[in-house]
Structures are given as C-alpha cells and as structure tokens.
Amino acid sequence: MEAKLKYYLQIADNALILSHRLSEYCSKGPFLEEDLANTNVALDLIGLAESMYIEVARQENEGRTGDDIVYRRKETDFLNVILVEMPNDDFAHIMVRQFFTDVFHQQFFSELRNSKDEFLMGIAHKSIKEVLYHLKRSSEWMFRLGKGTVEAQEKAQVAINKYWKYTHEFFLENDTDSEMLKAGIGVDLSLIKKNWLAKVEEIFTMSNLTIPTNDFTIEGGKQGYHSENLGYILTEMQFLPSKYPDAIW
C-alpha cells in the first residue's frame, strides 16, 4: 500500500477504535447529558473514519469498499496508536484518554489544513470544527475532576499516570509520517508534540493535575503491533461479516 493511503489509515484507525470504545460506554454514563455527549463524539469519529476508509478504497482502486477495509482487515494492518485501544476502566480513564486524543486531534488537524493533499485538507477543515467541541468538553472535565472532590482528582491523576507512556506514540515519526512530511502532505509531528504539551500543561495547571515526570514509552500500534485489547475489539467489531462472509448488510 502506498504511503499516502497508510497515512490516511493511521488517522482513520485512531478515530474508529476510539469510537468503538466510546460506543461500548453508551448507556453507562454518569448522567444522561454526558451519555449523549459521549455518543456524539463517537458519532463524529465514525463519520471521520468512514470518509477516510471510503477514500482509501477509491484511491487504491482494487475493488474493496470502505467497509471491507474495516471489517476484513487483520489486526496487524490496523495502524492506530495503542492509547485509543485502552479499555473504559472508569470515567476518569475514559476522559483522560479522550483529552489526550482531543488535544492531539486539535493540533494535528489544525496543521493538516495546510496539506497539499486536497482530500486531507478538506477532512482537516471539517474535523477541526468537531474536534474543538470535543476538546472543550474533555478540558472542562479535566477541570471538574481535578478541581472537584479529592476522590475525583486522585482518579484523574491515576489515569494520567497510567496513560502518559502511551501518549508519546502520537508523535512517533515512522517512515509513512516522514515521507508525507517531505511531500508536504503530512504534518511535522515534532511541532505537534510541542504544541500538544503546551496545551496539556495549560489545562493541567488550571485543573490541579500533574504531568508525570517519567519518560517511559509504550508504542507499536502505528507499526501494526498492538496491545492485547485490539484483538478483542476486532473480534467483536468484525463478528458478523466474519461469520457470514457472503451477506450484504
């Protein structure tokens, strides 16, 4: 597969897998309004992923559909970062995972608006509007958890400490990223990292939350090596098309 389409998949797979996790949480929110917000974000992310898969299928021109790319692809061909696979341990974990991803999306799509690739430029313009809402919500939750009760502050900090090591993968420049950057299609991940960190620091400082001091990293998703979670996610997601390969849904 050519680098550009892999680049599309990196973006789409992050959105799809995170959306899957948010979908699991539907009807389990702490109150109704938050349940609605959660499914709203899940829907935005599926919408983003779907447009990208359809475009991958169109450009590769090998007779696959967007759905084939989602439902008939093996685990090692998924290129999402590991963070988005992390399970919904509790509301603090869900929201910290969301906040880290929202800040990344905000920085990433802001830059991607300058892409030379017309499709990506269009996607970036559309997505940034949605992502700003997502980020507003998750930033506000950082504040509500960090500056609310002691229990909530502790839970949020536990989630931050646990997920910090997964955040580095957002900025890990693989061969696809380098090629796309050179071609003026992709973004400069070192710049994104700098801006991401500044935004996270700003919100955490305001919210009585702390950035961990360690530099451990866990990565692999962007190369197709995932956590054990992805196998279960795909088993569930691909269940019907796998069991009834001839069916059209």
């Binding site: 009807s27 389990k28 929110g29 702490p30 109150f31 938050e34 509790d90 509301f91 504040f143 509500r144 958890l145 960090g146 500056k147 609310g148 009760t149 229990e151 909530a152 502050q153 839970k155």
Partner: peptide, 18 residues
C-alpha cells in the same frame, strides 16, 4: 451506571464553586 457515576456527579458539582 448511576452508582458508578456518583463520584463524577459529585465532583462536577463541587468544581462548580472553583
């Protein structure tokens, strides 16, 4: 869901005074 969300609702309420 309602029980597990109690600490979230409480924290959201408390943070409203910050």
């Amino acid at each position: 869901a309602h029980t597990e969300g109690a600490w979230v609702r409480e924290s959201a309420f408390v943070s409203g005074f910050q």
